[in-house]
Design a protein around this nucleic acid. Sequence first.
RNA 1: GGGAGCUUAGCUCAGUUGGUUCAGAGCAUCUGCCUUACAAGCAGAGGGUCGAUGGUUCGAACCCAUCAGUUCCCA
Length: 881
Amino acid sequence: MIEIPSKYDPSIVEDKWYKYWMEHNFFHSEPDEREPYTIVIPPPNVTGVLHMGHMLNNTIQDILVRRARMQGKNACWVPGTDHASIATEAKVVDKLRKEGISKDSLTRDEFLAHAWEWTDKHGGIILEQLKKLGASCDWERTCFTMDKIRSESVIKVFVDLYNKGYIYRGVRMVNWDPAAKTALSDEEVNHKEEKSKLYYVRYKIEGTADEYVTVATTRPETILGDTAVCVNPNDDRFRHLVGKKVFVPLVNRLVPIIADEYVDMEFGTGCLKITPAHDINDYEIGLRHHLEVIDTFNDDGTLSEKAQLLVGVDRFEARKQIIPMLEAAGNLVKIEDYNNKVGYSERTDVPIEPKLSAQWFLKMGDITKPAATAVENDEIKFYPAKFKNLYRHWMENIKDWCISRQLWWGHRIPVYYLADGSFVVADCEENALEQARRKTGNNQLTIKDLRQDEDVLDTWASSWLWPISVFDGINNPDNKEINYYYPTNDLVTAPEIIFFWVARMIIAGYEYRGNLPFKNVYFTGIVRDQQRRKMSKSLGNSPDPLDLIAKYGADGVRVGMLFCSPAGNDILFDESLTEQGRNFSSKIWNSFRLINGWEVDPSIPQPEHSKLGIEWFKAKLSEVIVTMDDHFDKYRLNDALMTIYNTIRDEFSGWLLEIIKPAYQQPIDAKTFQEVSELFDEVLRLLHPFMPFISEEIWQLLKERKHGDSIMISEWPKPVANQEVICEKFELIKEAITGIRAIRKEKDIANKEHLKLFIVAGEKGFIPEYNPILLKMGNLSELEVTDKEVDGAMSFRVNTSAFYIPLGDVVNLEDEILKIEEELKYTIGFLESVKKKTGNERFMSSAPAQVVELERKKQTDAEEKIKMLEERLVSFKSSMS
RNA sequence: GGGAGCUUAGCUCAGUUGGUUCAGAGCAUCUGCCUUACAAGCAGAGGGUCGAUGGUUCGAACCCAUCAGUUCCCA
């Protein structure tokens, strides 16, 4: 017996074991002959801090990795961080501004120096926090999307895609962020409902004295860039006007009235003003009708020279100022309140300005095909599968990917311009120069004659290579590591980034490895609070994960989060869940304390009840393992957790330990002690992936372990076949014991008080071999099988066996009769419903044989039980008279 | 406006090609217990016409249709 504290203290235990695991290098993986199991971490922002979403996500990954490791696989979980181009640059700009330095005053290199300084200072904090959670990442493999290997991979891929003709420079309508002065992808735009105004403005028709068409617009400031007015070709109201021209208000530009199906006849006046430079739909109409494009905005959202009026005024100020101008000119008809949706930048939270600009694009045509097929055919499986539909829909409507960003923090686009505006694409300056010389035939060119593109690549253009680049599979496509670890097994991520990241990794996987990047994708939910609000810093509704760990232990937080998170469903987090997790730790600890406190006496033989109990629990555990494995195979981790949770609380602690527990201050026999220790060992192993720390602590205390041994490298338990019968039989014993307890409670009989039990054994429901357990758990003084009625007894029934506890005068015979009558009534009703089926010819002929057989069995069982109940009733009634 | 999903106990969710004892779990609730490992616990109990209506079927929470409510994605 070891002296152990009565209360479990996770803070000491957790740090101790994490350190131990690190010292013994258990997390590290090298290619060997074993089957690999690989997960790459979704790299968190390098300067980010741990939030609840990370906690959930990484807990799940750790569970999967730890189980795989115990299954004997060569488990490798690669950690790392993402440079997070826009987010990090925004933070650095913000920090500099607070110091009184504006980004514009710095050169690119100066700015990058600040950014690296910031990254070095804050980078990797989040990885340290993951260690507190117990994450078993192979820390020696930690990668960063902007470290040397990853950067070279990104550039190499850009050059390759360009050479394959997938990358092109195009003028496109992009989502322009006027605050960050960069283009954003559609996915980085959030649409928000807003109260705004709908302005009705009339345009004078050319060649008439006083005829106008009226358009409705939410953006009157863009009138200055109008190049047409458009109506629906089926609209009789305006058909006669098509082909005529109107004057754009204020600037009096003459523009045509055109017809296009796009126009909604019901909306506004049915007339639409067309500003190809500032609205995506207008742009497309403009392309169809070959309209002039007049860009009236500057990059910062102010009006440009082309607007002619209000030059230099911000777009929202311009909207205010143009109204009185339109009114004065006699063009304003009316103003209505209107709700519309406006796109906002995910990064800077300012309204997006649709803007034409020159960007680099990746063609999403042929390159996406294998990726679409892979998910469709379930080569890559999604959990839950419902995300397949979402994925398919996106892949079918996929647009070219705008991969350039007007930022400095990131991978600089490897395009080098010559003086004449032409360019070369190369992975380094030397190669660029060589190409330029070849291209121009001018060998006198120097690097100074080349000007590299100022823009960087979208962050996702590096993370889409992550499963390959972490094993250096881009630069060295045939290296030992990539060949061993790729394809990876599971990806655990949030559904929000299914397009940003998951889809693109699949595309890159097939393009650069000719193979899938991962076999399974587990989508976690979004962590919300009890009011279903997303947990966020700004709302202040997100607890600090480290505080929670300090309070409840990492194990407690891990299981607390998992209790409420079926795959793909949002998790409504509440601190009471982590409390439940901590309580579970306590329960396990106390079970250990009980066992640990027993004195072992090798001289006493094993009692029969202990032998039976152990035999049953072994059988039960086999069932549990089968169930858990099945849940794991289906990625139903919360169900797997619930299974081991109930097994420990109810079956192990509630039943097994109570069965084998020796009387107060009595020693236990050696065999039982040995066996229960082994069973506890097995239970702990099943628990380990979920609660790595407490399982290790107890596992180490349970018996003397070799130096350097650990539960995390022990074997995942395997089931023994054909244990169902023992489990089924035991359930009947539980039912009988529950019956005894119910009578004790009803008659307020203390548990200490011994009772006598008489049994009228029917064909089912009584198993004499389990009598020792019945005696102990029911605290019975005597157990007698009889075929006679028992006078003055309380009774209950299990299947067709009847159990009696004689209590003399306390028993109210009428109540007993009532009870039996109720059971009888229920059983007869049940029999009726079964007979309805078995008496139905169509059922008997069309239902599967198995089902028919089952119904027949139900019928005979019910008939037997009715017979038994009726006999009881008769004898009870006769004893009354 | 287009698309996808969801609606089962007070809450969060299971419910596996339609067929086991009249739908399950965890939490919460209620009752009783400070029973010698554990009150951060134990023993029990209650609680649902499976969103509505119709249809298919011997049989529907499950399949089909319509409607209502709700969430997300895209424009």
